[in-house]
């Protein structure tokens, strides 16, 4: 395990809903510039951990360090402003905004969002929008969504919405992307496109990734490092090959299907 330069570090994180401990003393760290996966059986607490890191849930116990700072209990919008971008298990597009508008919302530091500029200096917002729109055209083209730019995002197909999520995320220019099951419910061809985009973003923009993912083929193909969670805590960390040798991981998660997949 490379100890150097952890971008994200989670220490003894715990969270319960009522009496149920969803996350229980969970500790792991993610190295800068890697693509990592968070895997584990359903109910292991992965999505809760994502919510805690991203600030959507309030941390009850433990600490979160991001980019060298203690960010425990920082609200979601402040985490986003520090360069952490999270997506959700289900696509969360803005349905009644067009695809193009969906891409214009994420960029940070929009001067047209100030009331005074909106009322008295609309040209400030228009000028910035012009620059953002031309960047959005490039991004839409990269994802093959340009022909849909005027469509309401709510009218897109499931797969197109997944692409839009990543395109939107790219517009926010984050340092770290926390993707909760980005490949859920889409066909293999689209999965190949999405993981291509993820690798491109890591290589070109140096974005660090943490994916919650159930598709172990994808994890094997693109992830440098894997964290296994079970019953709310970290079970193991390492490469996929190392984890396959770990009897505890096999018992808790990988199960019987492991052998065929390992051969294939």
């Amino acid at each position: 395990m490379p100890e150097a330069d952890p971008f994200l570090r989670v220490e003894h994180l715990s969270h319960s809903f009522g009496g149920f401990k969803a996350v229980d003393d969970c500790t792991f760290e993610i190295t800068r510039g890697t693509i990592s996966a968070l895997i584990g059986p359903n109910g292991a607490g992965k999505s809760t951990a994502v919510g805690l890191i991203a600030g959507a849930l309030k941390v009850q116990a433990g600490r979160v360090y991001f980019d060298g700072h203690d960010v425990t209990r920082l609200p979601a919008y402040k985490m986003a402003r520090r360069g952490l971008l999270r997506t959700y298990q289900v696509s969360r597009e803005f349905p009644l905004l067009t695809v193009m508008e969906n891409l214009l919302v994420p960029p940070p530091n929009q001067r047209g969002e100030s009331l005074l500029n909106a009322l008295f200096r609309p040209s400030v917002g228009r000028r910035q929008d012009a620059a953002l729109a031309s960047r959005a055209v490039d991004v839409l083209e990269t994802y093959g969504l340009l022909p849909l730019r005027d469509e309401y995002a709510g009218n897109l197909s499931g797969g197109e919405k997944r692409l839009l999520e990543l395109a939107r995320a790219e517009m926010a220019s984050p340092k770290f992307m926390l993707l909760d099951e980005p490949m859920a419910g889409i066909n293999p061809a689209l999965i190949a496109r999405l993981d291509g985009h993820i690798r491109r973003l890591r290589d070109q923009s140096g974005i660090t990734f943490l994916l919650v993912e159930h598709n172990l083929d994808v994890v094997e193909r693109i992830c440098d490092q894997v964290v296994v969670m079970a019953l709310g805590r970290t079970l193991a960390e390492g490469s996929m090959a190392e984890l396959r040798q770990n009897p505890e991981v096999v018992r808790a998660y990988l199960g019987g299907g492991l052998d065929e997949r390992a051969v294939g």
């Binding site: 959507a56 979601a76 919008y77 999270r86 597009e93 349905p95 009644l96 905004l97």
Partner: peptide
């Protein structure tokens, strides 16, 4: 449209 998603973009 989606308050939580907007917050996840820093709004």
């Amino acid at each position: 449209e989606d308050q939580e998603a907007a917050e996840a973009f820093g709004k």
